[in-house]
């Protein structure tokens, strides 16, 4: 019996193992809920989707490393966004073009102003789904291919028989159309 016992984990290490497991579950649960919010926070600075995703990844690792310091009485998303801002800044430092875009305090200004605008952004973007439904079929499938199925721009261009540049231009126009639709919908409700 004693031999058997000594082979098992000590009660203490079992507890540590269980605590760790519980902490990971808790972390995952919190992070999964915040992930898209953090992504949009990062994308306000670095809107290129793949790069913003990378930064969110790095943020997740940093958050997990510091999860012991997280106070569960505080909301998780703002805590995560603080880490994301650091990661984004580190990322920007190494990229000259993004530095040029965000230098002289513009990054901080954007983050702050976005926070102020959030209620308004939320209320407008509520109309996005309805506006997407109103897009003509070919425009909608382009948006879907780019944002949802994450197809490469080359493939999308090939499918539509356009050049890459023309495909980008079309995407830009579709977003513009969506924005006009959203504005109209918002005005319609306000009136």
């Amino acid at each position: 019996m004693e031999v058997l016992y000594s082979r098992q984990m000590s009660a203490d290490s079992t507890r540590r193992f269980e605590d760790r497991n519980a902490a990971q579950q808790q972390f995952l649960s919190l992070f999964l809920r915040s992930e898209r919010e953090v992504f949009r926070y990062v994308a306000a600075l670095i809107p290129n989707v793949a790069d913003a995703e990378d930064i969110v990844q790095q943020t997740a690792v940093a958050l997990w490393e510091k999860f012991d310091a997280y106070d569960p009485n505080q909301p998780f998303t703002p805590w995560a966004c603080r880490f994301a801002l650091n990661k984004a800044k580190q990322w920007i430092e190494r990229r000259r073009r993004w530095q040029a875009l965000l230098e002289s305090g513009l990054a901080e200004e954007l983050v702050q102003r976005r926070e102020e605008l959030r209620p308004e952004l939320e209320s407008r973007l509520n109309y996005l789904e309805g506006c997407l439904d109103k897009l003509p079929g070919n425009q909608r499938s382009l948006v879907e291919g780019y944002y949802y199925r994450r197809e490469s721009i080359e493939k999308l261009a090939e499918n539509s028989g356009r050049t890459v540049a023309a495909t980008y231009k079309t995407l830009q126009r579709v977003r513009q159309a969506l924005q006009v639709c959203i504005e109209n919908a918002a005005k319609g409700t306000a009136a």
Binding site: A44, P47, V49, L121, R124, L125, L128, R175, Q179
Partner: peptide
């Protein structure tokens, strides 16, 4: 600046909300 923030938000929303589709 406000217009820029709105456009980026629209873009990042499309990229992060699969339920839209």
């Amino acid at each position: 600046r406000d217009e820029y923030i709105l456009r980026l938000e629209l873009h990042s929303r499309l990229a992060s909300e699969p339920d839209l589709f």
